[in-house]
Amino acid sequence: MENKVMTMKEAIERFVHDGDTLTAEGFTHLIPHAAGHEIIRQRKKDLILCRLTPDIIYDQLIAAGCAKKLVFSWVGNPGVGSLYGIRRAVEKGIPKKVEVDEYCHFGMVCRLVAGASNLPFMILKSYSGSDLPKWNNNIKKITCPYTGKEFYTVPALNPDIAIIHAQRADRNGNTQIWGILGVQKEACFASKRVIVSVEEIVDEDITCSDPNRTLIPGLIVDAVVEEPFGAHPSYVQGYYDRDNEFYIEWKKISQDEKKLQEYFEEWIYGVKNRDEYIKKLGGDKIKKLTPKGNFSKPINYGIYL
């Protein structure tokens, strides 16, 4: 069987190409920041970046000049404010002009559901009375053949590559996630290629002991990367909390182009990989972000012979 386990460097080299339509999902939770940093280190370019909530990860990718277009439904630093890297690119073309293609969350969800189901579009009860359809020709209307009523539609989104971070996966890529699930399942099924980074690679008998928790089957996964602390500064349920100090700090960094370059030099170009990043971050920080344990009660699946 093909070996899917590899380093982040290899996964990004092999599966992310210039000009790709890319989605790196994770709603506040499990944001694949280690992958984002590796894409910047490898200086990928002309990416079409899709994500419901482009937050710090896309602010960095866009400020580093990796993108030509942003497909989204809410852009901001959640709980903090604006993202200045994205704003500079969209408003002033610094470091390069980035086009925007904008929906509401429900619209983006439906685009991924359509993509994941191999359908051309999805109907939804949103957008009536909103100005969004006036400015986005991708949001169209259709008459229901059964009721004659009109509904808005959004087109399928089928990225070239999906990147997600999760708690654990086995070597075949069967991926288990708990806590906030966002649209990771939809994003992975919608995409042509999938990279999964995880806190831990576990044996298959662990994933198979709890199949309800397997959100993404290895069937659609191309690369599995073991990357502990790979979602920092976002969080991983049960592993570490969001580094909120960094989210607040990011505002100051992304506002100031010089500080932003210093950040890139120190934390992205200046480290070889996530291991070095974590060492630099330091044990005290990690300790501070680690929550107390709170285990779910075991359930009985039974053995049927």
Partner: peptide, 17 residues
């Protein structure tokens, strides 16, 4: 735009549904 704001997020669908 004079100021680019975050956008809809869930709000558009919530206000409708």
């Amino acid at each position: 735009p004079k100021v680019r704001l975050p956008g809809s997020g869930g709000a558009c669908a919530i206000s409708i549904l």
